[in-house]
Design a binder for these strands. Sequence first.
DNA 1: CCGATTGTGGACTAAGTTGGTCCTGATTGC
DNA 2: GCAATCAGGACCAACTTAGTCCACAATCGG
Lengths: 150, 150
Amino acid sequence: MLRLSRLTDYAVVALVRLGRSDGVATTPGIAAAIGIPEPTVAKVLKALTCAGLVLSTRGAHGGYRLSRPLAGISIAEVIVAIDGPIALTSCVDGAVGCESQSLCPMAGRWDPVNSAIRDALTNITLADMEDAAIPRAFRVAAPVPVNEEI
Amino acid sequence: MLRLSRLTDYAVVALVRLGRSDGVATTPGIAAAIGIPEPTVAKVLKALTCAGLVLSTRGAHGGYRLSRPLAGISIAEVIVAIDGPIALTSCVDGAVGCESQSLCPMAGRWDPVNSAIRDALTNITLADMEDAAIPRAFRVAAPVPVNEEI
DNA sequence: CCGATTGTGGACTAAGTTGGTCCTGATTGC
DNA sequence: GCAATCAGGACCAACTTAGTCCACAATCGG
């Protein structure tokens, strides 16, 4: 299925959410807003902090905020932050442990594929996804339309 | 990790192998050639047959052969044959069952990403991968000059 | 200075998926 | 008729993922 982890999906939602809140946002706040259990959101945000995509402030009145605008964050970065390096097979570049590495006829075979995927993902930013996410016909050049009922 | 199943990897190896054998190749033959357990190879070949990428002949002296030259088979086809449709999230186009579908702020969000990936994978053929797979310096007169040292 | 709020870090458990095996048939050629 | 080969499915084991929980550190407000 070539699927990435659900956590990455959550990360994108959380990031877009952060892009809409002006100040800092707390874990419970984000969790409630996007309908994902709080500890899971915390886990995702922790990973994003480590990757430098969001900045955290500890203590009371703390929370998270974006380190860059959404347009400056590529999907590839999010995936790497949550899922680890982008490589379709476990048998990547310098990876050791491929049991039949010597006679493995596909050594290096996937490299061009990996590169192609990486390129594709690097060229899509969170801002692009935010645009694509709104299925309604309402969308009219609003820069940050926080149109979420409920 | 955005990884695809190992079975897909096997499929590529098996297909490339089939591209080199002139006549038909049997399951045990391929299994021995590429160093993968026989039942597993059989499973992969069955899936490839269903997808129409290889043709099977039953009975004694039967076996498998490519339905098209390697250059006419894209990676995307192989992945679809083995792993199913290419979609990074379970929450695809018309997919139902996304529990929070109504308030899910990312409905349709991944579509551009999926398309980008699909395009990238469609533009790479098995022939390309075969070229990339040979680490030796023997390769001469390659039509597509993949100049990657090591 | 103390307590409430919030992020940090790790361990742990449970569930789902994948990979691999096996068995029983159906088909073809000798 | 027998051997070789593909077809199709059921089945089990192992790994990965995702979700939860707990104890701790930091900051702010009173």
